[in-house]
Design a protein around this nucleic acid. Structure first.
Length: 250
DNA sequence: AACTCCGGCAACCGCCAACTC
DNA sequence: TGAGTTGGCGGTTGCCGGAGT
């Protein structure tokens, strides 16, 4: 009871797609859809995976190419600061953009842009790390605090494993620290910051709780100034307090 | 004009989780 | 239940065109 392999690797065409191949693929999908099965797609001498990639990244009618706006750049950088290189999740927040496109854009432009901004900033904060804290799992679906100490610790372990390079937060055009902008509907996504006194994890947790239960700290689609938050120090930490409805860390 | 270098991007590769038989 | 298949993802490669020399 064994299925046929997805393609005969020795007889599979690679490299750039020709207009003919594109047309064949487009016509087929318009006629039949993908049916969730890329392997049975048109009899191009292409691997099913290659067909899927070509359609999703290039041929799909709603896909946008290039021309990233400032706002899109900001969203990408903010989400990168939180999620790291989880391009598919980041792409899900940007209609018409593909993970591949965003990844390329980050690697070729944004990374350098932020690095340059960091150098120009020229302060000790350069060496600071930020972290992405999947605390969302520990927050009630209505945004209220329902965290238990055990789930706290589970998430803390994940949290401690997820450190990212600093630069993504230098984005703020006013040259101040700003919290990542989280473009989630209904703003269930919210950012959190602490001064991370002495790099104490417990210290950060305290700030997290303070922040979480205080509605005025919940983002409403704008960036968040450092002075709005309890902890103001030279060793800031950033994270998410809630993004519960989206399960973005699952 | 010829050559080299470099940036941008499409496509491939390999891994892994989910699914199927 | 386990082996094999498939789809999805992130990392990487390699081609192409433009800029610089």
């Amino acid at each position: 009871m064994v299925r046929a392999p997805c393609c005969d690797k020795s007889n599979v065409k690679k490299g750039p797609w020709s207009p003919d191949e594109d047309n064949t693929l487009i016509n087929y999908i318009h006629k039949h859809g993908t049916g969730g099965n890329w392997i049975t797609l048109p009899r191009l001498k292409r691997c099913g995976k290659s067909c899927r990639l070509r359609w999703l990244n290039y041929l799909r009618p709603d896909v946008k190419h290039g021309g990233f706006s400032e706002e899109e750049d900001n969203i990408i950088c903010s989400l990168y600061s939180i999620l790291g290189s989880r391009w598919s999740i980041i792409a899900a927040q940007l209609p018409g953009r593909t993970d591949n496109d965003i990844k390329n854009h980050w690697n070729t432009k944004l990374k350098k842009k932020l690095f340059t901004a960091k150098i120009e900033g020229g302060n000790n904060e350069i060496t600071t790390t930020i972290s992405a804290a999947p605390f969302c799992k520990a927050v009630g679906s209505n945004g209220s605090s329902s965290t238990t100490s055990s789930s706290y610790m589970t998430d803390l372990k994940t949290y401690q494993q997820k450190y990212y390079e600093y630069p993504a937060l230098v984005l703020d055009q006013t040259n101040q620290f700003s919290m990542p902008y989280l473009p989630f509907e209904n703003n269930y996504g919210a950012a959190w910051c602490s001064n991370g006194v002495g790099n104490e994890r417990q210290g950060m947790m305290d700030h997290f709780v303070d922040f979480e239960v205080d509605p005025q700290h919940v983002l409403s689609g704008s960036s968040f100034q450092e002075e709005n938050i309890n902890g103001v120090g030279d060793d800031p930490w950033f994270g998410i307090v809630s993004a519960t409805h989206y399960n973005i860390f699952d």
